[in-house]
Each structure stands twice: as structure tokens, then as C-alpha cells.
């Protein structure tokens, strides 16, 4: 082993070991459960494919899966759209106040996640601020939990939570835009808009993709937010997985559902990696 290889080995082995122990092995264990009849006692040692049959013949499960993908897509899209101007401002306009603005952006994230979700619930419920405002301004005559208990409520809440997260990879990508290129574009007579669409935006695409997946992937497996604000119509696939493990005690079916999510995400991730080269720009 030469010096460089040795150094790489020492640098990489702790994270590689960590990943092996806490990521690859658990996924292996989970995969083994998919083929077990049950999670306890002798049922653990009985091989079966019944869980596949259960999953693929229950249409309500598929519906929830597709709806969750759609919900995650919409959440990620709106998060990126809202985070982009923020990141743009931080990268190009904030100047020496960058640190202050960055801190301001992150302060909401210092509050516990659950508290922020509950705060939305309190704002939107029948006695909440929204109702108070609508009632006093005469738009409504009877209070109701508008916007709450729906898929929309889940998207609104998650977008609110994820915008600061999405802004970080975007900021990182915009930071790497070569100022000389922008100046050259302007020198050659392009306006601000044209420069943005032909230089800044294309160069920041990897950041956009990174931000999108930063939101899309955790949202796809969400279950806390839908539980709290989604109501009967807003529950997601993650809720179903959680129920299989905690309430139904059908760990094999829960494991299968989790793997299906994983299998759906990986090819999309590879595809986006190919076209945008996220890995080159990933900020961490």
C-alpha cells in the first residue's frame, strides 16, 4: 500500500464501517424478514412469499403509495421553488451580512420539529388565528378547520419545515457559479434575466436536484406530520409501514413496504445523479 492509499483507507474505514454496521446490515436483516412468515417465535423460520401476495393484491396499499409519491413530489417542488430565491439572495446579494441571514434562516430549525408541526395545527384549527381572521373580516360565518386534516395540510407543513434545508445545497451550488461568467454574459449584452436562465440556473442544476431529493426522500417516508395534521385523508405510506411494525406486528409486511420504497427511490436517484452530477456538488 502506498502512502496515499493508506491515508484513504484510514480516512474511509470509520465511515465505511459505520455504514456497514448501521445501514447495509440492517437493510440485509430487513430483507430477510420479507420472506419470513412472522416476526416472532417459530414463524421466523418459515419461508413464505405470502407477504408479496398480500401487498400486490391490496389496491388500497398501492393507492396510498402513489399518492405519497405525488405528495412528496409536490412538497419537494414547492420547497425548491421557495428556497431558490432565498439561496440566490444569500449567495449574491447578502454580501457581508451573509452570516446573519444564514442564522436567521436556520433559527426556526432550532425549535423542535414536533413543536413546529403542532404550531401549524394550532394556527389552523377551528379556534386558530386563520379562523379568527376570516371570521372577523366577514369571509366566513362559521368556524371550521380550513386547510387542516388533508393532504394539502401535510404539504404546507412539510414545505415550511424543509425550505431552510433545501436552501443549503442551493446556496452551495450558487456559490460555485463563476462570477467571471456572469460578468462576461453581461459584457456581451445579456440582460439579468437572460444571464440567469443561461448561466446561473444551468450551473445550479445539481444544487436544485440535491435540494429536491433532500426534501423528496425524507418526505416519502414521512409519518409524523401526516399523523398530526393530515387527518383521515392525509395519511401517507409511511403511516402504513409504521402501523405494520407497531400495531399490526406484521414486521415482514412492514419490511416489504419499506424495501419497496427503497427500490423505488434508488433508480430515480441514479438517474438524477447521471444527468446532474449531484455527487460532485453535494455539500456534505
Amino acid at each position: 500500500m502506498n502512502e496515499e492509499k493508506k491515508r484513504a483507507f484510514f480516512l474511509l474505514s470509520p465511515p465505511a464501517f459505520y455504514m456497514l454496521l448501521f445501514f447495509i446490515m440492517p437493510i440485509g436483516i430487513m430483507t430477510s424478514y420479507v420472506f419470513r412468515e412472522g416476526a416472532f417465535g417459530d414463524a421466523r423460520y418459515i419461508f413464505t412469499l405470502d407477504h408479496f401476495k398480500d401487498f400486490f393484491t391490496t389496491s388500497s396499499y398501492h393507492r396510498l403509495l402513489f399518492r405519497s409519491i405525488f405528495q412528496a413530489f409536490v412538497t419537494a417542488l414547492f420547497s425548491v421553488i421557495l428556497a431558490y430565491p432565498l439561496a440566490y439572495f444569500l449567495a449574491f446579494k447578502a454580501g457581508r451580512h451573509k452570516v446573519i441571514f444564514m442564522t436567521l434562516l436556520l433559527i426556526p430549525a432550532w425549535t423542535a420539529w414536533l413543536l413546529r408541526i403542532l404550531a401549524w395545527k394550532i394556527l389552523l384549527d377551528s379556534t386558530g388565528l386563520l379562523n379568527l381572521f376570516l371570521l372577523s373580516s366577514g369571509f366566513i360565518s362559521e368556524t371550521a378547520p380550513y386547510l387542516l386534516y388533508s393532504g394539502t395540510a401535510v404539504v404546507i407543513t412539510l414545505v415550511y419545515i424543509y425550505v431552510p434545508f433545501a436552501a443549503l445545497p442551493l446556496f452551495s451550488a450558487l456559490e460555485s457559479v463563476d462570477q467571471n461568467m456572469i460578468e462576461a454574459s453581461k459584457d456581451l449584452g445579456a440582460g439579468t434575466l437572460k444571464t440567469f436562465f443561461q448561466i446561473t440556473l444551468p450551473v445550479s442544476v445539481p444544487g436544485v436536484a440535491a435540494a429536491f431529493f433532500f426534501v423528496f426522500i425524507p418526505t416519502l417516508g414521512e409519518w409524523v406530520t401526516p399523523t398530526l395534521v393530515g387527518g383521515a385523508q392525509g395519511i401517507m405510506f409511511g403511516n402504513l409501514i409504521q402501523e405494520q411494525f407497531v400495531k399490526t406486528l406484521n414486521w415482514p409486511l412492514g419490511a416489504l413496504m419499506s424495501l419497496i420504497l427503497l427500490v423505488l427511490i434508488i433508480p430515480v436517484l441514479f438517474f438524477f445523479n447521471r444527468i446532474s452530477g449531484i455527487s460532485e456538488y453535494a455539500p456534505v
Partner: peptide, 12 residues
Amino acid sequence: FTERWNQFKAAP
């Protein structure tokens, strides 16, 4: 009972 409940919750 629990499977039925899950299907009920997953349905539209």
C-alpha cells in the same frame, strides 16, 4: 382486525 383497520385507513 388490525389488517382490516389498516386497509380501512389506506382506502380513499
